[in-house]
């Protein structure tokens, strides 16, 4: 039982990390209908920016803020200079551009910071917890806290503010939203700012959780998150979060209790195939 609870807590943490990376991708897909693969590179950039600022100042909060700002800037630049001019072409054209950006940013990170893995030994101002035989390390507690705060913020923003209303309207039909007086170009930029800042938070959290920051850290998330937004329902942020948490838990429990011969990463794609067969609109997507 203790083992099960420990596994469950770890599984939810992994799911939360997936959720942080995937929600930004779902936001962008919702508004532009683009598979923003380069989102994973922004996540890696966020980890590097955070690590850079942290090793200079030793202030984790400052590192978080600067990294979010840097990622927002790059995210908006990608939207303005790469995606916007490509929107008039079929969707695979911006996708190709996005893949090129992913590889390009990876190599820029390598050129600037070197190919070696950097450790991220952050001092975390959060205590660990002991519930009987269950231990939650400070890092694990941080992952829970930060994810809950960010996800709550996203929920509040999109359901309780006018900006959220405009974002949802634009994601339903951007032309009609525009004709009703919503400044859609500003809404698109705002979406990229929110998505990219979330990716920055995820990058820093993952960097600390696994104590590793390296140029190709976005490679696995780049494809796994694609499967996750399909499972959740393309463009649905709550769906993406639900799919992420479910995947994190099932991956962890399957490895812990069944010696499956399949690699862990295959699970996301099995789920994607299953969803496409039986519920093509995704867990929480609309038809």
């Amino acid at each position: 039982m203790d083992l099960f609870l420990e596994q469950l807590l770890n599984g939810i943490a992994i799911g939360f990390i997936y959720a942080l990376i995937t929600s930004g991708l779902a936001l962008v897909y919702g508004i532009l209908r683009i598979l923003h693969v380069a989102h994973a590179a922004i996540y890696a950039l966020g980890a590097y920016a955070g690590l850079g600022i942290y090793s200079i100042t030793g202030n984790l909060f400052l590192a978080l803020i600067v990294s979010m700002a840097a990622c927002s800037l790059v995210g908006v630049a990608i939207e303005k200079f790469v995606y916007f001019p490509l929107l008039k072409y079929p969707p695979y054209v911006p996708l190709i551009g996005s893949i090129a950006l992913l590889l390009g940013i990876e190599e820029v990170l390598r050129l600037v910071a070197g190919p070696y893995i950097h450790a991220f030994p952050a001092e975390i101002p959060v205590p660990g917890f002991h519930f009987g035989p269950i231990t939650m390390s400070p890092v694990l507690v941080t992952v829970y806290l930060v994810t809950v705060i960010v996800l709550f913020g996203l929920w509040f923003l999109s359901t309780r503010t006018e900006l959220g209303l405009a974002m949802r309207a634009s994601s339903q039909d951007i032309q009609i939203a525009g004709s009703l007086g919503i400044n859609t170009s500003r809404i698109i930029s705002t979406t990229f700012i929110i998505g990219s800042s979330t990716a920055a938070v995820a990058g820093i959290l993952v960097g600390i959780y696994f104590n590793q920051v390296y140029p190709t850290m976005g490679a696995v998330p780049a494809y796994k998150t694609l499967a996750l937004i399909v499972v959740g329902g393309l463009g649905s942020v709550p769906g993406a979060v639900l799919a992420s948490v479910l995947l994190g838990i099932s991956e962890t429990l399957l490895i812990g209790y069944a010696n499956i011969p399949l690699p862990r990463d295959a699970l996301a794609f099995i789920a994607m195939i299953a969803v496409l067969m039986w519920r093509p609109q995704g867990l929480l997507g609309r038809r």
């Binding site: 770890n10 590793q212 429990l253 690699p263 862990r264």
Partner: peptide, 20 residues
Amino acid sequence: DQAYPFPEKDFKPYLSKIKE
């Protein structure tokens, strides 16, 4: 006796079992 996929970062599921 267990293999883990190459890009694995989270070894806690395996280690929990080993700990037992």
